[in-house]
Write a protein that binds this DNA or RNA. Structure first.
Lengths: 211, 211
DNA sequence: TTCCTTATTGATCACACGATCAATAAGTTT
DNA sequence: AAACTTATTGATCGTGTGATCAATAAGGAA
């Protein structure tokens, strides 16, 4: 008989199983969207009965919120760490823009967009969304403030400017989700716009490849 | 007996009933989201059997797409008409930014955001989304080109710049959907950023109220 | 070994969805 | 007045959802 048929899933430690579930849910979210995270869907991916997913999560909504937070927080930390290695605020902001606009993170953008809508009916998720937006804003604000301190930038409202930069990035990425054609030089135009907002010199935020 | 109990809905002309259904679906979409548009939900709002909704629409997806298009196209035409009354490109662009950023259209923004996600699984809707995005882009591009022609703006890439402006507006509005606090002078910062992109004079795009 | 905790199962409940369609009745045409 | 068209109903089917829970069995503790 086939050896691949497994009657009952191996018993694992709660920590291990919980991690396994979160990982499976993440994968589902990234390629089918947050709304594809259902108890049965996740269970089948893990190779386990649906009841077990419920046993590890207070509710399906909570699982969705957890997945969102995990995915998005990882990205924030990754980019933040990348910036820390750069010497100047201009360089950091330029890399920030370039990194977030290079199209390699569209799956995460899709998660963001869906979360904005789902948050309307999932309070736990809504709280997570606000928290992660704040985290992003803090990263950007810090860069802007460092630039002001060093004289590279000039603005009296770093917090607002940081929100605006994020909003612009989100909007352009969301747009890219649906429409690619016809938009050339996304990075260049955005860089120019942001230079205007933070009061940087012209060209200071262009990616190295275009400078 | 009560006279408000109506056993059977009055028979109406197809055109009238269709309009009634679309109107009800629009109302549902605007205050509960596109995903709240279900046959039963719309039927109950119209005061009619659910089968009748299906009788007037090829599918539920088509109804959702129709509602999206109706709502969004109306906004585009409304704003476009508003711009036509203004003499200068700078004035038009300033009013465009001010109008779309004043927070009075957040319900429509929510529709946009949800449509971006729903379009993943509703092909008819996805087509409508692309179509309406193009319509908006055409409006903005025209303003930019007029500004270039009159010497108010200076850019060689009006199409791309138009996309960018739209993306920024969408992103900032989507952000406002979730987070209001902490962001002051949204309009002012955006105006400055757009001035940089289209090559307008500093302050040319500030709303009259702040100039 | 025996006992006990608990990870895991799988069936089940109530609900909501889109779709379908025979039956009904309202209004129009003949 | 009779015949006909079709708007409208309401029940029904199949599917999918989250939640719940008694039953099972695996593995550590005694």
């Amino acid at each position: 008989m086939s050896s691949t048929i497994q009657k009952r899933a191996a018993r694992k430690s709660p920590a291990e199983r919980a991690a396994e579930i979160l990982e499976a849910a993440k994968e589902i979210a990234l390629d089918q969207g947050l709304s594809a995270i259902t108890l049965r869907n996740v269970a089948s991916r893990v190779g386990v009965a649906s009841g077990l997913i419920a046993h590890y999560q207070p509710s399906a909504d909570a699982l969705v919120a957890g997945v969102f937070t995990t995915i998005v927080a990882a990205e924030t930390e990754e980019v933040s760490a990348l910036l820390d290695r750069l010497p100047t605020a201009s360089g950091r902001l330029a890399v920030l823009l370039e990194t977030l606009m290079d199209g390699s993170r569209l799956d995460v953008t899709a998660i963001w967009v869906e979360a904005w809508t789902l948050g309307r009916r999932n309070e736990v998720l809504a709280a997570g969304v606000r928290e992660q937006m704040d985290a992003w804003q803090a990263v950007v604000q810090r860069v802007v403030e460092e630039g002001v301190a060093s004289g590279e930038f000039e603005t009296a409202e770093a917090p607002s400017v940081a929100w605006q930069i994020l909003g612009m990035i989100d909007g352009l990425n969301a747009q890219a989700l649906v429409r690619w054609a016809g938009v050339s030089d996304r990075g260049t135009h955005l860089a120019r716009a942001v230079e205007g907002m933070v009061g940087a010199e012209r060209g200071a935020l262009l990616p190295p490849s275009e400078r």
